[in-house]
């Protein structure tokens, strides 16, 4: 079984590395966009799956990453690497603000507060002079990475994006499997006990908000560089809904389940595009059956079937239905 896992992973890695050389098989820009969503969903899941906090405002971080990077690179003439960094840090700073305000409540109220704040951020990008309102921030130059790699070439860009996303996912994995991640799970499972054990729960929550927001921002930043565009729908609440959908579809009790969800949603929107408005209906139906039939998500379900107890599963606790018995603050 172990051997099989490693073989699958190795073949997958080789396939991903080969992507830019076979544009007729799979469109590299589409794969890069999917990478961005993978990072976005996994970062989002740090909050939902690992800390038990539902944020309905993550589009604000994704959109901020895109707009700030676009602004720095296009109007301030910063190199692309610094632009990405700026986008990530801006999103993380926004995450601190969101977190500090939102964690005064929990459950549905918390989700609503993040939603309200994300709407304020959306309004800012709609009105701010540099964003081009409905047209979006267009023609962002791709520039060079670290002054060496010319990102105008899709092939180079592909490997840079691949590397950054891999690094981002490593940060997520490292966070989950660290003492910090263990405290987050303690907060998720039983917050009063975490408090009584002396953990500064509020500080942990703000920190994980910042981390999740920063990585989401990085995903948005890369999307802005790839498409050379930062648009309003990056910051629209639909994006917040989409990332919840990806995470739940993939499995929120796993580290990389959301990645599978992101691939699925991204592939559905890409390949079902010829069907026009039917895409929304199909995604809605898939999502509906997911909520009703397998709440542990695709990867969670697969893991249960295969009894795959490698690093896909974060904890030995019975994964499915964890949220089901959780306290309902209302």
């Amino acid at each position: 079984m172990r051997l099989l896992t490693w073989t699958v992973l190795a073949v997958g890695l080789i396939a991903l590395l080969a992507v830019p050389f076979f544009p007729q098989v799979v469109y590299p820009i589409f794969v890069m966009k999917t990478f961005c969503f993978i990072l976005f969903a996994c970062a989002f899941n740090l909050l939902l799956g690992h800390t038990g906090i539902l944020s309905f405002g993550h589009a604000a971080f994704f959109g901020s990453g895109a707009y700030i990077t676009g602004y720095c690179v296009k109007y301030l003439g910063w190199p692309t690497d610094l632009g990405l960094l700026a986008g990530m840090l801006a999103a993380a700073a926004l995450g601190v603000i969101f977190g500090a305000l939102a964690i005064r409540r929990s459950g549905i109220y918390l989700a609503m507060i993040t939603l309200a704040m994300a709407q304020l951020v959306y309004f800012f990008y709609l009105q701010a002079p540099f964003t081009g309102a409905e047209d979006g921030l267009q023609q962002i130059p791709r520039g060079t990475f670290l002054g060496l790699l010319d990102l105008r070439s899709d092939i180079t860009l592909y490997y840079v994006v691949f590397g950054i996303v891999a690094a981002g996912l490593w940060v997520v994995w490292r966070t989950v499997n660290s003492p910090f991640g263990a405290v987050l799970r303690a907060i998720r499972e039983h917050e009063p006990r975490a408090v009584s054990l002396g953990y500064p729960v509020a500080r942990y929550k703000v920190l994980v908000f910042a981390l999740s927001a920063g990585l989401s921002g990085l995903a948005g930043s890369m999307k802005a560089i790839i498409f050379q565009l930062a648009a309003l729908n990056d910051a629209h609440w639909h994006m917040s809904g989409d990332v919840i959908l990806m995470t739940l579809l993939g499995g929120m009790n796993t580290v990389f389940g959301p990645a599978a969800g992101a691939v699925l949603v991204s592939a559905m929107t890409h390949y079902l595009d010829p069907f026009g408005a039917w895409v929304t209906v199909i995604i809605g139906l898939v999502f509906m059956s997911c909520v009703l039939l397998f709440r542990e998500g695709i990867v969670g379900k697969l893991g249960k079937i295969l009894k795959l107890n490698t690093n896909f599963q974060t904890d030995a606790a019975p994964a499915p239905g964890r949220l089901e018995k959780s306290k309902s603050e209302g």
Partner: peptide, 13 residues
């Protein structure tokens, strides 16, 4: 169940 699931089901509707 957690109210989140109701929110998500109606969202998919």
């Amino acid at each position: 169940l957690d109210p989140i699931y109701g929110l998500l089901l109606t969202f998919s509707l």
